[in-house]
Write a protein that binds this DNA or RNA. Structure first.
Lengths: 335, 335
DNA sequence: ATCGTTTCCGAAATCGTTTTTGTGCCTTGA
DNA sequence: TCAAGGCACAAAAACGATTTCGGAAACGAT
């Protein structure tokens, strides 16, 4: 007995036309105080709630955007979501989150009329639209901005991984020593963003080129994306080295594995063995891990603002914003 | 030039009526193979995509449900979301996540025509509908199921915290010793679920009643919901005791603080000082922490299935499902 | 008194689907 | 031969809002 009452009923009870009720409800002018009150009274009395589906149908607007992202629960996406949310809230927009929790979901969301696309705009986090939509267009030509990944055809906000690697490199080279890089194997068969680890390595190399130290091929250890990966890398490094070293792990998880394994072998990072990670995970501070911190919240907030802009002017020129990471120095890289 | 093409255009190109196109698209009978092919050809040629808003408007169905939850990023909500997602995917429903990231969002989501309620059903996680909607009804009378909280008026899935406390108590009392409980102060001014810590304590007390050991009033230490809270509790306990003890922490975070502080003082849990936590956080295993594990994924999956059922039969009787937690014994409580 | 302007409001068109109803035509069976 | 029924499709009526258009009344200025 709630969804049954329509704007018609309100109009009838108030003794006015539906158009008048609509005008009152949407705060338009051209309505006298008197009728406005009558309408409000009728609305109150009937407990009328506008049918949102009808409204969306007519206006084509939902006042909401969808955020598609590979997963949730990681520190990265938590911070990103918070940033997006704040950016959106400023302008009375709401965000629905649609994580690609399973291959099945991914398949479903390829359907252009899936629920996520029932929104005014779209934020794709770490998701390559070409791969996600298999070369097709964005469903319903939804205004879209990419975050944590770039694409010539869409607005995007990213942070510069090359620069992050460079920062790590410059820092470690304050004290020249044999250098190792521990990084992750990339897979290109998912619609997720990729190539970042290689970029970080590239930046690191660039820093090395400015100094006297070399990075031999076999000093780049490629492992799996796991804590165990880091431990294995530590064993590998110890096999190759006995003395001071500078180590760059292209993500904190690997750095953690390294630290734990070193500790197990009685080696404490910082001093002789210096280590820099990447990501600034929440536990990094407790671990005393030097690391490269990305402005993830800013990235999210900026993406939200870009989307809002695009909603206003759909045909404006595509913009790409590249944010800079920041080096956080802690004990693990002290000389 | 995509959203511009409607079912009309398809009908015209195919040389049939719109109703026929609709029948084809929805797989209804009463269409010959020949016209079916014609329509499909026209659809293909025009790149026609049905207007989802219109469809929703007409049918009143979206094939999606909304999940309202206090936050994301915690282990609890991660597991819950995974459970829900799996339960929903089985029947071709999609879930939009709407975390109450800020007080502002909470306020917005009180509006019955906010985007989250533009769905076929609603899952409220840890959220009390009375408080959330300030005594009002669920927006648009959306079929709703509650999870991690109960309410007489709605379907719900919860796990029994009293039972969890009881399990911890029975286990610790295998070896009688002075007993402490570390718990968290509750706040009732939020729309979030609450009272669970008290319930866990109640269950623990119930176990004690079956044995010879007493729980003195000042052996219940109430602290803040933080790692530091656990550390302070450890200090407090050490002040009161010198010898063996059984400790029940009503959540793992407190247990972690306890363990760390004890370690700092040279005391290792397990053996003399036995400890049981609650939640089975991801790190609990590495910590060797005995703890009470809730079947969170099951809870989510069950909630999803209940909602699906209710969507089919909106007037069916309200059901409440109470799941049982399970004790995971590890080193921290070995004798 | 006349003429414009403004203010307020109603009638009707409209959005793109789904669903109901109607209508010829073709079969079938008695 | 005729009634009954099924088939394939068309026509039109919803669904519930917003928006456009236009007209009556009220008002002020000439």
């Amino acid at each position: 007995m709630n969804t049954r009452v329509s704007i018609q009923d309100v109009a009838q009870l108030a003794g006015v036309a539906v158009s008048t009720v609509s005008r009152v409800l949407n705060g338009y002018r051209d309505v006298s105080e008197e009728t406005r009150a009558k309408v409000h009274r009728a609305v109150e009395q009937l407990g009328y709630r506008p049918n949102q589906a009808a409204r969306t149908f007519r206006t084509g607007k939902t006042q909401s955007v969808s955020v598609l992202l590979p997963m949730i629960g990681t520190d990265f996406y938590n911070r990103l979501i918070n940033g997006i949310d704040q950016g959106l809230a400023q302008r009375d927009y709401d965000a629905g989150l649609f994580p690609l929790l399973s291959p099945r979901r991914l398949e479903r969301y390829r359907n252009p009329s899936a629920p996520p696309y029932n929104a005014d705009g779209l934020i794709l986090a770490s998701l390559n639209p070409d791969r996600l939509f298999e070369g097709g267009k964005i469903p319903a030509d939804l205004p879209t901005v990419l975050v944590d990944i770039a694409h010539t055809a869409y607005d995007s906000v990213t942070v510069d991984h090359v620069e992050g690697g460079y920062l790590a490199g410059r820092h470690l080279l304050e004290r020249p020593a044999p250098t190792f890089v521990v990084m992750i194997e990339e897979r290109f068969d998912t619609p997720f963003a990729s190539g970042v680890f290689r970029e970080r390595l590239r930046g690191f190399r660039r820093a090395l080129e400015e100094g006297p130290v070399k990075l031999p091929k076999d000093h780049v250890v490629t492992v799996e994306f796991s804590w165990d990966g880091g431990r294995l890398a530590a064993q590998e490094i110890l096999r190759r080295l006995d003395g001071p070293a500078n180590i760059f792990a292209t993500c904190d998880l690997l750095a953690q594995g390294l630290i734990d394994e070193f500790a197990h072998k009685g080696i404490k990072v910082g001093g002789e063995v210096r280590l820099v990670g990447y990501d600034d995970q929440p536990w990094a501070e407790a671990y005393g891990l030097s690391t490269v911190k990305q402005p993830i919240e800013s990235m999210g907030g900026l993406a939200a603002r870009l989307l809002l802009q695009r909603l206003e002017r759909p045909t404006a020129e595509v913009t790409h914003r590249v944010l800079s990471p920041r080096l956080v120095v802690r004990e693990s890289s002290r000389v």
